[in-house]
Nucleic acid binder design. Structure first.
Length: 474
RNA sequence: GGCGACUUAGCCAAGUGGUAAGGCGUGGGACUGCAACUCCCUGAUCGUCGGUUCAAAUCCGUCAGUCGCCUCCA
């Protein structure tokens, strides 16, 4: 039953069944955040979908070990040695040290993840913890002839590989360097796609983080960290490597080049890439600025889980366009869903026949290239199913292990309303009593006046079958 | 210029050869003094043109549009 999770493998460009290197276990790696600024909701889309993948694997019975790095050094705005380090510019912007910046934004990242019910990976490793490992790998690459030094830096020699462009059918000839105006070409490179493994030449006035190395004092290139950190914690064979589609080239391409050259054998068999969240003007990007964060959504009154649901109702390989209109749509859908579930009576005998059928449908949806939209449909179908509330609740709790939408534990609007003091409560209860009397005497004008009076104070009343209820509008 | 993805009702979206799931919204109805909640009903032939096939949203080709990558990016 385990070997049935299928998803699109960027390496083979087909949907494949995952067959792990070690039976029953999955070694999974995720490129973590660059902690020079807040993660925006587009970044978080990837982490949400990867979270669903991880939980799906666990749901069907795999023992998953997941590792994530934190890029706290070496991420230049350009791969030439003239680019400014993003950590450094973040520190300058906020008048803090690089380490303070890293700490602050790492914490902020995991706080966002917590709000979105994204599980923290089993291992989280900052790049700055692994400098010795980076140096070791670079030494081996130099020994094996896959790397060379030039102009003070160490470069990976892409011409030593038969198949550098593993993810596409592009050839070196077809790739243009400098199609964008702002890219500076590094004259030290032997081949246009060679990339830096170690920098010693730094033009930054205050490069805060530097380490001794056989090539001089300096700092690592961007790609080396993911190779080393994954090897350190997951060993020589990794099953699934995840990230956003924009990492396919050059980052993941370079990781493969380094890792397989270092190891001398095939490294990772399955590559899972999540497509971008766009807004009307195109890709939401950290470097473009003006991006949306989870905190901003909350300030605008949205439950972060509404955003999670927004992501789940789409497919991870499709570009998804963000708009407040669609988020409002989802907000209504989520509130309604939670309310319906909250009303399910916890009664009856567990209906095993129905449960088995729904379990099968649910896991089939997720195992079919992570069809989260279909998984949500299974939830809706279950709510409509002719079976008892206890069975539905039990299944929903189970499905929520993967969906993580707080299906049963989310609070309805009434429950999240601000607390009211006793005085206000007495006042409202009195008014409701007055209104009830007015209604009894068919004095609807007075009844409506009382309702309006309360509404002015932000109190909304509703006549339900069980009597009049009220809540303070948050 | 090269590579790649996407295009299904007002919006989101499933569906990979046999005559279109689901959600939100809209409209109508039931309930309610009214309203809200809830419940019921309500909608598309699948970007264009052409081909393959007994049969295509589903396969092939074409055109168009949108988006992404090509050393900042999830």
């Amino acid at each position: 039953m385990e070997n049935k999770v299928r998803f699109y493998n960027t390496l083979t460009r087909t949907v494949e069944t995952v067959i792990p290197h070690e039976d029953g276990k999955i070694a999974m790696y995720t490129c973590g955040p660059t902690v020079y600024h807040f993660a925006h909701i587009g970044n978080l889309r990837s982490y949400i979908m990867e979270d669903v993948l991880e939980k799906t694997l666990r749901y069907v019975g795999y023992d998953v070990k997941r590792v994530m790095n934190i890029t706290d050094v070496g991420h230049l705005s350009s791969d030439a040695d003239t680019g400014e380090d993003k950590m450094l510019s973040g520190a300058k912007r906020e008048h803090k040290t690089v380490m303070e910046i890293a700490k602050f934004y790492t914490d902020a990242f995991f706080e966002d993840c917590r709000k979105l019910n994204i599980r923290t990976p089993d291992v989280v490793e900052p790049a700055t913890n692994c400098i010795q490992e980076f140096i070791h790998m670079i030494e081996v690459l130099l020994e094996k002839g896959y790397a060379y030094t030039a102009g003070g830096n160490v470069y990976f020699d892409t011409s030593k590989l038969d198949d550098y462009y593993v993810f596409s059918s592009q050839s070196e000839k077809e790739l243009l360097v400098g199609v964008r105006d702002d890219v500076e070409e590094d004259v030290n490179k032997r081949n246009k796609n060679d990339f830096v493994l170690w920098f010693t030449k730094s033009k930054f006035e205050d490069q805060a983080l530097k380490w001794e190395s056989p090539w001089g004092t300096g700092y690592p290139g961007w790609h080396i960290e993911c190779s080393c950190i994954s090897l350190k914690h997951l060993g020589e064979y990794m099953d699934i490597h995840c990230g956003g589609v924009d990492n396919i080239f050059p980052h993941h391409t370079n990781e493969i080049a380094q890792s397989e050259s270092y190891l001398g054998h095939r490294w990772c068999g399955y590559w899972f890439h999540v497509n971008h969240l766009n807004d009307k003007s195109g890709k939401m990007s950290k470097s473009k600025g003006g991006f949306l964060t989870v905190s901003l959504l909350q300030e605008n009154g949205y439950d972060p889980l509404v955003y999670r649901m927004f992501c789940l109702q789409s497919h991870y390989r499709k570009p998804l366009e963000f708009s407040y209109e669609v988020l409002d749509n989802m907000s209504a859908a989520y509130a309604k869903l939670i309310r319906r579930i909250a009303e399910l009576p916890d009664e009856g005998e567990m209906d095993e026949t129905a449960a088995a059928a729904y379990r099968a449908r649910f896991s089939d949806a997720l195992c079919s290239d992570l069809n989260t939209s279909m998984a949500l449909t299974v939830v809706y179908d279950l709510l409509k199913e002719e079976t008892n509330g206890r069975t539905k609740r039990a299944l929903l709790a189970e499905f929520d292990q993967v969906l993580s939408l707080n299906l049963l534990t989310a609070q309805t609007a009434a429950e999240t309303a601000p607390a009211v003091d006793a005085e206000l409560e007495a006042y409202v209860e009195e008014k409701i009593k007055e209104r009830k009397a007015a209604k009894k005497e068919k004095d609807f004008a007075k009844a409506d006046a009382i309702r309006e009076e309360l509404a002015q104070k932000g109190i909304v009343i509703k006549d339900t079958r069980e009597g009049t209820v009220w809540e303070v509008q948050g």
